[in-house]
Simulated assay, not measured.
Amino acid sequence: MFTGIVETLGKVVALSREGTNTHFDIHTPINSSLKIDQSVSHNGVCLTVVDVSPEKYRVTAIDETLQKTSLGQWKEGDLVNLERCMPADGRFDGHIVQGHVDQVGTVESIKEKDGSWLFDVSFDPGTGNITVEKGSITINGTSLTCFNSRPGKFTVAIIPYTYENTNFHQLQVGDKVNLEFDIVGKYIQRIIKGYQG
């Protein structure tokens, strides 16, 4: 389980294909503390560390993950938001984040406003995912509060610290982002709507 509080940035230094899988080699300041079989959130996607060296570590994404997240668009040099799993005795600073991306959204607009930035994000509402005003949303693994919540759209405000210390400073209009909707909201929606077809 994660909290959505990004720990550091990693840089994609190499990609390689093996069948339908893609291996990503990533360099990060926390590289020396990682170990094989450890789960790490990469832009909100929980991936398992499969190899570690002093300069980089490797994770593998299966085709299902590549199809349902933005990982299939990664290239060498991209910066990735990283978070290790929350320790059982740690502080819970964000919200419950599973590292299981629900769908990909699109950055519709970015506006600078008095030292912070407003990001408008859209998503396909046909999947049944929803946001609520002042509710939690995870974008590329970052725990945020959404507002201007409406079907298929919402806005988040990014403070300077988050802007500089995550990959939000690299995002542009039209970019795809990984979205994980609030788990509590997903359970409530399932209880109300039940299982369909």
Results as ranks from 00 to 15, higher is better:
4 G>Q: 04
4 G>C: 04
7 E>M: 10
8 T>A: 13
9 L>Q: 03
17 R>C: 06
18 E>W: 11
25 D>K: 13
30 I>T: 15
30 I>P: 11
32 S>D: 12
36 I>Y: 01
38 Q>L: 02
41 S>N: 01
45 V>L: 09
50 V>D: 06
55 E>Q: 12
57 Y>W: 09
68 K>I: 08
68 K>W: 07
70 S>W: 01
75 K>T: 14
77 G>E: 05
79 L>K: 13
83 E>I: 04
83 E>N: 04
83 E>K: 02
87 P>R: 15
91 R>D: 07
92 F>H: 05
93 D>L: 15
95 H>V: 10
96 I>A: 12
103 Q>I: 12
104 V>H: 10
110 I>W: 04
112 E>Q: 14
112 E>N: 13
112 E>L: 03
114 D>I: 10
115 G>W: 03
121 V>Q: 07
122 S>N: 12
122 S>E: 08
123 F>L: 09
125 P>K: 07
125 P>V: 11
127 T>W: 11
130 I>W: 06
131 T>G: 08
131 T>H: 04
138 T>I: 12
140 N>F: 03
141 G>R: 02
142 T>F: 03
146 C>Q: 11
148 N>G: 09
151 P>M: 06
151 P>T: 12
152 G>F: 01
154 F>V: 12
155 T>R: 14
157 A>P: 04
161 Y>F: 15
169 H>C: 14
171 L>W: 04
172 Q>T: 13
173 V>G: 06
173 V>K: 09
177 V>H: 02
177 V>W: 04
179 L>W: 00
179 L>S: 10
179 L>P: 03
181 F>N: 08
181 F>I: 12
181 F>R: 07
182 D>C: 01
184 V>E: 05
185 G>T: 08
187 Y>L: 02
189 Q>S: 10
191 I>H: 08
197 G>Q: 11
197 G>Y: 09
